[in-house]
Design a protein around this nucleic acid. Structure first.
Length: 808
RNA sequence: GCCCGGGUGGCGGAAUUGGUAGACGCGACGGACUUAAAAUCCGUUAUUCGAAAGGAUGUGGGGGUUCGAGUCCCCCCCCGGGCACCA
């Protein structure tokens, strides 16, 4: 018997699929299309288990859909701009381009050794000039339509990476790349106006296809919609008013003080008008000197100072004191609040500490609500609120008070979002240059479209200081204004790499286009992506930005659809030793070695078998032995089966039943991404086949062919090489051209089954009876064969031919 | 604190959505083959009482609904992930 040699077989078929262009989608026709996409990888140099899981799931779907007759598009590319290449350049002097391309080439080889089908003709890389030219094009279109703008703003600054970061890249006050503490700086930076789409990004989550609940929830949280009212608080004896936002207008009568943040735009004016100006200045300065992280870590203990000024409550003209406190954030809402200690825990804590009056205005129906130890924030009824007394707090109470504010021109209904504009400029070298020119006369002028790309300049030293490294190239920096022709300077920042990845899935459709980023008709016919697959770590960043890009490009007339990804699948992480695999922790399990020792087929199978694909899972070295054993046994079984003499046996029907039941079950599990149970179904079939071979030494030709063919086709998406080899050596056919097996209804039910006999729902016996037995017959058999205390039951329940239950 | 998940043998996990809990695999134990080992094959493997037949218990904990609950309802505990002084 020929031994299964994975090295030889896998190499052969990988070459075959590439040479024969087994997958090569003609995008001109989108009929029966299926756009299957794995998130393109950052070329880190080596494939890790996370990639393997991602691309295995992706390939399983590609092959399954191909066999089901779909026109599958499955491209691959590279998220190839980014920090590591630049850091390596600083350290070693190797050019980031060479560094990146070497790694791409290495990873390409590794991906090919996994045996996945990719349409390499459509490959793209974010750092290629013919890609980033069009990233610049899109930037200019956004700029022309006021969706990209430059602004002075307090931004997140990472001292170690020497660059600004988007809010999404700050994790608990730390840089998501290097974990150093992020500082706040006031800088002039580029933003994309994602906030303009906040409402649509939120609503879209309800219309989108099948996305994991947690990803939807995370995006919902991140967008953070709050509805309430915005209104003015007049400062007594001053012309100024302070605008405040609240989600609880119903509690307005309970305001006993107001607070502005230390960075509020009126702080100087207020300080100068106050008798406490020295104390205020001192407090403001000390708040400023704290990092955001320090402020956050002081959540328990609130601090503030009384300005001595009063503001006037617009609903009852009561005067309350105005405080400065850093528990009020500058960059949310208006940077100032009405404080209602009775019904907001933060205000409550502050009022208790500084001995400010606490006035209850909401109570439960029996008016027994107690606010002695904490604020009452639940739904209740208004009290002490004049004509609004008795209204339901969160609903009618709020609505009526908003109506009052509007009618009296004091305020308005307002919706606020937590989502802020996306800060996209980076003071780094290895990224897409921002195609803007600063002209003293004309201001910010986009580069002429015909002059694109704005090429990354060659520089000697990639190290950045406060300035972007691009500023070191005088030839790059100095240019002429495209508008007036006068001397001008180029923008020296590059774009966040998430800009590159916000549209790559559009470019795949038309990756060779040298006239425009993509042909709209083609893209409209292929998008949205039918199935997107990637890690949950992109739940907010990439997946939110891409959604924004598609909506913006739609509004600019380039696209006619609303969402980029109809269905999203997030695979769980593979951990080792209890934590995420990482080089620094030294707990990397290298997939490459398994290609050698066990083969890609066994590795793929194990990755699929180890857990439901959406679950996080701990790597277990022993487990892969099991899937390798399975493949060996499959190989032996099929060769043995194929060599059997062709005479029918009476055991064949049983084998055919298992076969057809497996086809049905596997097909169902496939559509639910339950690949772990697909593998176990195939293992059962394999065991059944072993059993047959042990007992019989002949088989009819038709059964033989059915078993080999269907079993092998079921296995093919999971372990493509071995199945391709078996199929071609037995049938002399290319399995990738075969259709997905169908099951024969006649073989789904067995002639007999185990009838479970229960007494009061508790299993007592199981007896073998023939299929199709009636309730009367079953009851009779039970009475004849068992002492059921036959007079003792009053009711019989017969469930789906499987269980008979006698009830007392 | 809020929002998502989740809690089943020694381990990873199944369970047709209210109907035989523990499929499939790993590991472990026993046996066969072998001079020996590896590989392979055969058996056992939730806990507990029992020599056995068989019984009892059992899906984080406590209640409930039901002939019947891992699955549904109420309360509580724990773990993972996300957000967090967001007014």
């Amino acid at each position: 018997m020929k031994e299964y040699s994975h090295l030889e077989i896998e190499k052969h078929w990988q070459k075959f699929w590439l040479d024969n262009k087994t997958i090569s989608c003609n995008v001109e026709s989108s009929s029966n299309k299926f756009y299957n996409l794995c998130m393109y990888p950052y070329p880190s140099g080596d494939l890790h288990m996370g990639h393997i899981r991602n691309y295995t799931i992706g390939d399983v779907i590609t092959r399954f859909k191909l066999m089901n007759g779909y026109n599958v598009l499955s491209p691959m590319g590279w998220d190839s701009f980014g920090l590591p290449a630049e850091n390596a350049a600083i350290k070693t002097g190797i050019h980031p381009k060479k560094f990146t391309e070497d790694r791409i080439s290495n990873m390409t080889d590794q991906i090919k050794r996994l045996g996945s089908l990719y349409d390499w003709d459509k490959e793209l890389a974010a750092h290629n000039v013919d890609y980033y030219k069009w990233t610049q094009f899109i930037f200019i279109k956004l700029f022309e339509n006021e969706l990209a703008y430059k602004n002075d703003a307090p931004v997140n600054w990472c001292n170690s990476c020497n660059t600004v970061l988007a809010n999404e890249q700050v994790i608990e006050g730390e840089c998501d790349r290097c974990d150093s503490v992020v500082e706040q700086k006031n800088l002039n930076q580029w933003f994309f106006k994602i906030s303009e789409y906040a409402d649509e990004l939120l609503d879209g989550l309800n219309e989108i296809g099948d996305w994991p609940a947690n990803v939807k929830a995370m995006q919902k949280n991140w967008i953070g919609k709050s509805q309430g009212a915005e209104f003015n608080l007049k400062i007594k004896d001053l012309e100024e008013s302070i605008k405040v936002f609240t989600t609880r207008p119903d509690t307005l009568f309970g305001m006993t003080f107001a607070v502005i943040s230390p960075e509020h735009q009126l702080i100087d004016k207020i300080t100068s008008q106050s008798d406490n100006s020295e104390i205020i200045t001192e407090y403001v300065n000390s708040a400023k000197s704290k990092t955001e992280f320090e402020r956050m870590s002081l959540t328990k203990e609130k601090t503030g100072v009384d300005t001595g000024l009063k503001v006037i409550n617009p609903v009852n003209n009561e005067e309350v004191s105005l405080w400065v406190a850093d528990y009020v954030l500058t960059n949310y809402g208006t940077g100032a609040i009405m404080a209602v200690p009775a019904h907001d825990q933060r205000d409550y804590d502050f009022a208790k500490k500084y001995d400010i009056e606490i006035k209850q205005v909401i109570s439960d129906k029996s008016q027994s609500t107690n606010i002695d130890s904490e604020a009452f924030i639940d739904e209740g009824y208004l009290i002490n609120s004049g004509k609004f007394d008795g209204l339901k707090s969160h609903t009618t109470g709020s609505e009526e008070i908003i109506k009052f504010l509007v009618e009296n021109n004091i305020g308005e209904k307002k919706t606020l979002f937590r989502l802020r504009d996306w800060l996209i400029s980076r003071q780094r070298y290895w990224g897409c240059p921002i195609p803007i020119i600063n002209c003293d006369k004309c201001g910010l002028v986009p580069e002429n479209i015909e002059s694109l790309p704005v090429l990354l300049p060659e520089i000697d030293d990639y190290k950045n200081s406060e300035d972007s490294p691009l500023a070191k190239s005088i030839e790059f920096l100095n240019t002429k204004c495209p508008k007036c022709g006068e001397d001008a300077t180029r923008e020296t920042d590059t774009m966040d790499t998430f800009v590159d990845s916000s549209w790559y899935f559009l470019r795949y459709i038309d990756s060779q286009n040298s006239e425009k980023p993509f042909d709209s008709d083609l893209v409209n016919s292929w998008l949205p992506v039918d199935q997107y697959i990637g890690g949950v770590e992109h739940a907010i960043l990439h997946l939110l930005y891409s959604r924004f890009f598609v909506k913006a490009l739609r509004d600019l007339g380039y696209l006619n659809f609303n969402e980029p990804f109809t269905n999203l699948f997030s695979q769980g992480m593979i951990n080792f030793g209890g934590t995420k695999m990482s080089k620094s922790k030294g707990n990397i399990v290298d997939p490459e070695s398994y290609f050698q020792t066990h083969g890609a087929d066994a590795l793929r199978l194990y990755i699929l078998f180890m857990a439901p694909p959406s679950d996080g899972v701990e790597w277990n070295d022993g487990g892969i032995e099991g899937t390798k054993r399975f493949l060996n046994k499959y190989w032996d079984n099929l060769l043995q089966l194929n060599s059997l003499k062709e005479t029918k046996t009476d055991k064949e029907d049983g084998l055919l039943r298992t076969l057809n039941q497996t086809v049905k079950s596997v097909t169902e599990h496939f559509s639910n991404f339950e690949f772990n149970t697909v593998v176990s179904d195939l293992m059962k079939l394999n065991n059944e086949l072993s059993e047959y071979l042990k007992n019989c030494n002949t088989i009819s030709l038709s059964t033989k062919n059915l078993v080999i063919s269907k079993f092998t086709r079921l296995l093919h998406p999971l372990s493509p090489h071995i199945s391709a080899e078996v199929f071609s050596s037995i049938f002399e056919k290319d399995i990738t051209k075969e259709s997905w097996p169908e099951f024969d209804e006649n073989y789904l039910t067995n002639p007999t089954f185990e009838l479970v006999v229960q007494l009061n729902g508790k299993k007592k016996f199981a007896i073998e009876v023939s299929t199709g037995i009636t309730q009367d017959e079953a009851e009779k058999i039970c009475k004849e064969n068992f002492d059921l205390n036959a007079d003792g039951y009053s009711k019989i329940i017969f469930i789906r031919d499987k269980i008979i239950n006698f009830v007392d």
